[in-house]
Simulated scan of single mutants.
Amino acid sequence: MGTDYQQAREALGIRLRELRLTSPDGRLTGAELAERLGSGWTKSKVSKLENGKQTATTEELTAWAEATGHPEASDGLTAQLRGFESHIRSWRRQLASGHKPVQDALTAEHARTRVLTIWENSLVPGMVQTADYARHVFTRHSGLMQSPRDTEDAVRARIRRQEGLYEPGRRYRILLWEAALHARVCPPSVLAAQLDRLASVIGLDTVELGIVPFTASLKIYAGNGFWIYDERRVIVEDWHAELWLDDADTIATYLRVWNTLRESALYGADAHKTINAARRALDVG
């Protein structure tokens, strides 16, 4: 867990302790507060929250404010939580209700974005996925994360977002490592259809699609996939969480990475040839 995230969580814990110790009814012990909060609360949980060892939910923060006699502090606590959770969004918490809510959050980001800059090193990005390909990706991810399976709802949400590809005024700058064309995250027939779909977007005036081939001389290693929204926010996926990053220096770093990788990319007819070669290697009809 990142140092900035942990420091922010500890700062929230300090604020929670202040509220407990300044209750209008008199200073509360951890055990007394847990009793007031009721079912599911223990002295140990109170201690973990105050010492930054556990992250509270919005509902828990509201309950804490009320139980300590400071209901007016609820909004401030929630804002503090949003401030650091906007940076690290754990899959465990995000997927508690399945993949569709995650897709809906991304749809909101897409709706206010005019230029989307994408780097993917191992998967075809969601903006140009077929429904079958997306279905296999969601199924594998929910199995790994042991999350509720709402695959069809998630697929529909992702595919609907692709309507943006046909809206004038939008730009999608998509950059893929060639590995994404070969990754068998689905059956060969599904991957073949996905590669056909990928090739078909090369002619769209809203899409700039580049492929970094295996044979390219790389000025920087491939690294994680990331999405840059209007130079306003970067979203990076890792195994434990999504990182939502919005400080200017970090965004500038990711833009430099993307531009450096772009120098090794193939576009137009050359990109088309690379995609077709990957499809022929599947040996399907």
Rank of each mutant, 00 (worst) to 15 (best):
I228A: 03
R279F: 01
V207Q: 10
A281G: 04
Y172D: 03
L255F: 11
V257F: 07
A192C: 08
P148I: 02
V257T: 09
R156G: 04
T139S: 06
E208A: 14
L255A: 15
Y254K: 04
L61C: 00
H87K: 13
A252K: 15
R280W: 11
P168Q: 09
E242D: 07
G38F: 11
L191V: 02
I202W: 09
L165R: 12
A216K: 00
T68M: 11
G76N: 11
P148C: 00
A79N: 08
W177R: 12
G164N: 09
T55W: 09
S74D: 00
D230M: 01
G13P: 06
A183M: 13
W41E: 00
S189F: 10
Y172H: 13
G126H: 05
R232Q: 10
H141F: 07
E242S: 08
Y5M: 02
L245R: 05
S189Y: 08
T260I: 00
R20G: 03
I174P: 12
N224G: 11
D25P: 10
E109A: 13
N51L: 03
A31D: 01
P148V: 01
I211R: 14
D150M: 02
D150G: 01
I235T: 04
E152F: 11
A193L: 14
H110S: 14
L61N: 01
Y133T: 05
W244Y: 13
Y221F: 12
E263S: 02
A63L: 02
I88W: 07
G268E: 03
G30N: 15
P71C: 04
P71G: 00
A111F: 09
A281D: 05
E35R: 15
Q194F: 04
R233M: 14
A269R: 15
Y133A: 10
S142K: 04
L49K: 08
